[in-house]
Amino acid sequence: MRYLTRRVLVLLLTGWAALTINFVLPRLMPGNPAEVMLARFQGRLSPRALAALTVEFGVHTHQSLLAQYVAYWGHMLTGNFGLSLTYYPASVAQMVAQAFPWTLGLVGISTLIAFILGTGIGIAAAWRHGSRLDGVLLPVSLLLNSMPYFWFALLMLYLFGFVLGWFPVGGGLNLAHQAGGWAGLGAIISHAILPAATITITAAGGWVLTMRNNMVAILGEDFVKFARAKGLPDRVVEFRYAARNAILPNFTGFAMAIGFVVGGALLTEIVFSYPGLGYLLYEAVLNLDYPLMQAIFLFISLAVLVANFLADLAYILLDPRVRAVGRS
């Protein structure tokens, strides 16, 4: 299982890199920006919290870098991400834990829908490639793929929120869903439809493009022609023979795609004031709340890592060649 070992190694190394970036960044910048932040919050934080922050960001500390790094790892492994400066006295961990499920739900569901939708359309376009459908779909997907997520989100919000009034214009979700029961669930769904639609529509374009190209390439393979020579029905050739193979590269390309979608989703959350990590990150950036920023970055990275790892596992399950020999 050389393939799997390599993936695990990448997973661990990337996790380490994400954590280390958080450690290095503030120390790398000329005139450590965290110092400015700390100065601003002087007096508003307890001395203990301040002391912890000095270690985390390497401000006014006489410890060696190595000792700081070790202490930093100690904090990370025990889940001690420090206090949020914006939401003081709430801890960063609390804030992230509160926001994370929202993002997971929104991004998870819309990515899944976008993947299925985009892949399906890509298959259909490739199967009829050269047709008018294919000719129209391609530039449309390119355009969708080239739209800034947040801008599209703004237009959706304006049109369906303000002008037509079909959906709530954002905010207030935390209160609404606390109503609980069906009303709460309804509030969650009605708040999520627009952001989810935005992410789905803009992300699907990318999947259409990659799937279409993979599939067109696969349709030229001998085994597709041979499948037709066997007299298999079109549906079987299209899905079981062509699409089943064409979808494989999508799993190795998943890393880039999911990173891109998550980025877009963060911006979408901001536009809709959706109470997820993206919105929290925005607040943190506005308030120069570095501890919160770092924890969010870490969390998003880990989530993306896990998503990638799952995609790798799916790939292993779907491609017998990788299972047997292992590829790098």
């Binding site: 085994f223 020579a229 193979n245």
Partner: peptide, 20 residues
């Protein structure tokens, strides 16, 4: 096809579906 007229392609890697 196959029932009346069958086709055998050149012995290349790719005549058979690699994932089935």
């Amino acid at each position: 096809r196959l029932r009346q007229i069958a086709m055998v392609f050149q012995a290349s890697m790719n005549v058979l579906n690699p994932v089935l």
